[in-house]
């Protein structure tokens, strides 16, 4: 692919998959409530128009620079994450030798950006959302790094294309069965959905997003979806062989695998209740972190 085609594919992938999640959310909610979905394909567009039609408001004495930048930075981080994902053996926007480290930076900076978003509005519910997100986001990030390093071990490289190539014989989801489920939890945490929605939850009147409206809110909501897309694409790449597959062209395989992972992520976000932040912290440190460590040790022993 030429750089222009590659860039257009990257944009279309992000926008298309974000819309796909919004449609899935609508269908899932209708099915679970036992009612007919309301214009499932067009409803995301209607909602975008509604948000855009609203004025971008101000709070009293916000940290305006950070408040306005946070949604754009969050969307940018999601876009950067997708840029690491190869669409085929010769088509990757950001072909880095240290792709996994770059993804780790995306995760770490997401924690910073979400905190800034909640803090800079100068509002108590947003601030509580920000506090809670940092508390949960940091340990989840550690789990993710453990499982990603484990996935990089068979490839003996931190470059994402080489991790794909190392899965010609066997996908990492088989080789390291704990990796994918733990990584999916990261997806929920990075986009604060369902059981991991501690930043923008209903009990905080939408938390860090409780004070935004208009274009800023649209960017924020899009960024949440885009971050889920990035995580799903990375999961499909690192654990499910990415573009590898018979008959169909590589980009289509990536698209299909990402779409399947997104169905899983949407299901997880609707299926499970959110426990209190302190209990979640206990669960992360006492149960999930050791599991991630076992995954890493397991991968290390197999690589030996």
């Amino acid at each position: 692919m030429t750089p222009i085609v590659l860039t257009m594919t990257w944009v279309a992938f992000l926008l298309g998959m974000a819309w796909y999640i919004a449609v899935l959310d609508g269908l899932w909610a209708a099915a679970r409530e036992g009612r007919q979905p309301r214009a499932p394909l067009a409803n995301p567009l209607y909602r975008c128009a509604t948000i855009l039609r609203q004025q971008s408001n101000l709070t009293e004495a916000p940290d305006l620079l950070n408040w306005r930048l946070a949604p754009a930075l969050y969307a940018g981080l999601a876009g950067t994450g997708v840029a690491l994902v190869p669409f085929s053996s010769a088509s990757v926007l950001a072909d880095l030798e240290v792709g996994i480290v770059w993804w780790g930076a995306v995760e770490a900076l997401t924690v910073v950006v979400v905190f800034l978003h909640g803090w800079s509005a100068n509002s108590q519910l947003g601030l509580i959302g920000a506090y809670r997100y940092v508390a949960i986001g940091l340990p989840v990030m550690l789990i993710s790094m453990f499982v990603l390093i484990a996935a990089a071990l068979p490839a003996e490289s931190l470059a994402v294309p080489k991790i794909i190539e190392s899965q010609h014989e066997l996908w990492n989801v088989i080789r390291q069965p704990l990796g994918l489920p733990l990584f999916l939890l990261l997806g929920l945490s990075l986009s604060f959905r369902g059981p991991f929605n501690y930043a923008d939850s209903a009990d905080l009147a939408d938390g860090t997003a409780s004070e935004i409206s208009g274009a800023a809110r649209l960017v924020w909501e899009f960024a949440r979806l885009a971050m889920l897309v990035a995580t799903a694409a990375m999961a499909a790449t690192v654990f499910l062989g990415g573009y590898l597959g018979p008959v169909l062209p590589g980009p289509l395989w990536l698209l299909l695998k990402t779409a399947v992972v997104l169905v899983l992520l949407v299901a997880l976000s609707h299926l499970f209740a959110r426990i209190s932040p302190s209990r979640m912290l206990t669960l992360i440190w006492i149960v999930l972190m050791p599991l991630a460590f076992i995954d890493l040790v397991w991968a290390g022993l197999v690589a030996l």
Partner: peptide, 15 residues
């Protein structure tokens, strides 16, 4: 149900 992050089940209860 809504407070624990299960809005769809909450709506089902309302229905």
């Amino acid at each position: 149900l809504s407070l624990v992050g299960l809005p769809t089940l909450s709506r089902r209860a309302q229905i």
